[in-house]
């Protein structure tokens, strides 16, 4: 039995401690906003926050989240009101949308650490996240916009 907090809800799950957090979220808790893309820390589709840090949940054994706090895309805001979500809407970022949960979760940590990122900062923070639809240019714009929205 492993206890963890996800999106400020306490959960107890009966799984192997080695099971990646991704599959606990998706298959046990049915929080499917966090995506599987590669399973080997290559694409960032599975990015969630573990105690506020962006982690690749596909390679994070659930035991690392034991008694810890996890936030997924479902827990980012209740009403699309996070500055990144507002900026994503404004810039019409998503295409297929599959990578976007991971992109937003990665960007959220970037903005918290660095409220006014440069293009270079964005490249550095976001290059772990693949978007096969190629929405990178809009993601970059949206992160700049979100930085402005948060500053207001």
């Amino acid at each position: 039995m492993i206890k963890l907090s996800v999106n400020n809800q306490p959960y107890t799950v009966d799984v192997e401690p080695a099971m990646p957090l991704l599959w606990v979220l998706r298959d046990i808790l049915h929080l499917t906003g966090t995506k599987y893309g590669c399973g080997m820390a290559q694409c960032g589709a599975c990015t969630v926050h573990l105690n506020g840090e962006a982690v690749r949940s596909c390679v994070t054994p659930v035991r690392r989240a034991e008694n810890q706090t996890v936030i997924t895309i479902e827990g980012l805001s209740k009403d699309f009101s996070h500055p990144l979500q507002r900026a994503w809407i404004e810039e019409d970022v998503p295409q297929c949308g599959y990578c976007q949960s991971g992109q937003i979760m990665a960007a959220a940590v970037l903005l918290r650490e660095n409220p006014h990122p440069t293009d270079q900062d964005i490249d550095d923070a976001m290059s772990g996240n693949i978007c096969r639809c190629g929405t990178y240019q809009r993601i970059r714009k949206a992160i700049h916009l979100a930085a402005k929205l948060s500053a207001k």
Partner: peptide, 21 residues
């Protein structure tokens, strides 16, 4: 015209085939 599927795709609500349960 802004896309009609954006909010679903930035909130984890969008259902892809792989999300069916």
């Amino acid at each position: 015209k802004k896309r009609l599927d954006t909010t679903a795709k930035i909130s984890g609500e969008a259902m892809f085939g792989i999300d069916v349960h």
